[in-house]
Design a protein around this nucleic acid. Sequence first.
DNA 1: CTTTTGCAGATTGTTGACAATCTACACCCG
DNA 2: CGGGTGTAGATTGTCAACAATCTGCAAAAG
Lengths: 278, 278
Amino acid sequence: MLKLLKPAPATPRAAGGTGRGSHSVRGEAAPTRTRPARVPAVAPLAAPAAGIALLQSNSLPALVQRELERMILAGDLPPGAKLNEATLADLLGVSRGPVREAFRALEESGLVRLEKNRGVYVRQIAVEEADNIYELRAVLDAFVGRRVAASADPDAVRELRSHVARMEKAATRNDVDGYLKANLEFHDRLVELAGNAKLLTTYRRLVNELRLFRRTTLAQNGVLPTSTREHRQIVDRIAAADGEGAARALHEHVMASRERMHKASAAPVRDTTTRKSR
Amino acid sequence: MLKLLKPAPATPRAAGGTGRGSHSVRGEAAPTRTRPARVPAVAPLAAPAAGIALLQSNSLPALVQRELERMILAGDLPPGAKLNEATLADLLGVSRGPVREAFRALEESGLVRLEKNRGVYVRQIAVEEADNIYELRAVLDAFVGRRVAASADPDAVRELRSHVARMEKAATRNDVDGYLKANLEFHDRLVELAGNAKLLTTYRRLVNELRLFRRTTLAQNGVLPTSTREHRQIVDRIAAADGEGAARALHEHVMASRERMHKASAAPVRDTTTRKSR
DNA sequence: CTTTTGCAGATTGTTGACAATCTACACCCG
DNA sequence: CGGGTGTAGATTGTCAACAATCTGCAAAAG
């Protein structure tokens, strides 16, 4: 007779909404025993509770993993860079154990490569692999388009349009970084709207790996306007609840990006200067 | 800024151990470049070289990870089971460090769930999540069908037919385990034939997670013959180089499996063993 | 009799130390 | 002068000990 009168926190242990690595599968019919919620009689205050939950779910290795992932995706640790255990541990103020555990996780997520007795390196994506990823993305995005167009939520459409507007604004300024960010968010939100959590994590994994590829694609002349136009078309098809059209538009958009990548990688890279992101 | 960046080697040495048809998700479709053997001009003997390469690329954490993955997928460690660090370390003859590293990797690959200060548990897949995975698989497999049918290699078709034959044989004997194994190998090979390494790792990851779902699906009456028929149709469409037909057949096959799962999970499980209910 | 509270054992988190391996460079020999 | 060789330093792999946290039980309080 457990008295669960206590308003147990809505999410038992949930931390970090769609964040990576948090595989907290909600609603697992626990055959073992659900946690007895040790909270005392007093109703927990919201703010400290959040902090507590943060502390509870975030171990040192998880923190290190997140930080390293951020550094890699931000370009602070460029592809091919060697990650030194001791140095990183010192930098992050922990010992080597947690760093090593983070390395294992990052390898499985495809961001680094481990070589026994040699070290850990940020992965370098070959053109062929990037090509494979683009192909996969095209397939997944086509499915996404079909699904999202079927849902056809006016609010969602409005939100997507705002993302496209941000892209347009960045494009007129030739702000490649801003464009890239808006672009990523647009597609991420789109996949999220498809309502398949596993699809979302799969998609994010692929996009993360793709970000390791050298990003000279968008720097070409005339690419930004073209890409923007494609995005507008995608939203239009969704707004019209045209599933097949949205699927086709998304598929072609990704395949066009793939082509642009090939063009860019065939031609010599123009800006060889270290483009520090901001 | 960060001085832990050493001048990265232009061409990083590829990690060894490619391919190796196991269902392991890891593995980077790297060019088959082996480590520059330190032995001088003499041609290395095959047998010792293999052993050396094995030792070189397999660290203790990797070994532990593989073994745990095997145990989980084989059902020795059923979903929901708690994995005790010290016990497993003792069992495998290593210390807790490598075991912890393996845990991190297994979490990222979706096979276990980590709870800080609580322990590590084999993941349990909820019906909704299995549903999501089936949907994804259907999309991927449709793509696979289109691609493989386009390649249309007689040898490949023969090989696929042999897998189907093994399924048929197992079906007539009502050998569910044998059927499951042949089924897995058929689909794995099929995806491999699509020639997209990233697709293959993605697919394997999904299938691995799906195997954590309770596998009562195939035990139903009449499922095995139906499933076998679907497989034969798939190969037929591929042999006929009918891309769209193969895509449709595969998509429908996966969606039918999904339906069968729903049927099985809705109806009470008719298990031979006594199930404790309370 | 029920609920709370406080140990005691067990388990996980983290760390620092030691062993194994690799890399680089100076050295020796032809 | 070129090429192999050996050693020193750095880096990674592994381990065992210590600290923090959780779980379960038992005793005390109401």
